[in-house]
């Protein structure tokens, strides 16, 4: 089980959290301006890296806030955990 550090509450067991997938995916400002391929890229295509991955988690059974975790997808070691910067672009 992962030990995840919530930036607001501290380190808790993985069972308190829900996974939110790849971080930094922004909904396009004007979807109608996109081609089908670009829309598909936003909806479905993922980095899915073997190695460091920036991902979203929510402390579902705690403060219920979303935050960003950097984790190695092979060793599962978490290298950082921080708040989302509100208002600013989170695009990687």
């Amino acid at each position: 089980m992962l030990l995840i550090s919530c930036p607001y509450c501290g380190a808790r067991a993985e069972t308190e959290f829900s996974y939110g997938g790849e971080a930094g995916i922004e909904r396009p400002k004007d979807p109608h301006a996109l081609s089908d391929a670009e829309w598909a890229d936003y909806l479905f295509m993922r980095k899915n890296p073997r190695g460091l991955h920036t991902e979203l988690w929510i402390h579902a059974q705690g403060c219920r806030r979303w935050f960003k975790v950097e984790r190695d997808t092979v060793s599962y070691k978490i290298t950082s955990s921080r708040e989302l910067s509100l208002g600013a672009s989170e695009k990687e």
């Binding site: 992962l2 993985e14 829900s18 899915n48 991955h53 997808t73 092979v74 599962y76």
Partner: peptide, 13 residues
Amino acid sequence: DAYIGYGQRGSFQ
């Protein structure tokens, strides 16, 4: 398991 993982192992729960 909910998270992306290439480690060929998962969480106990």
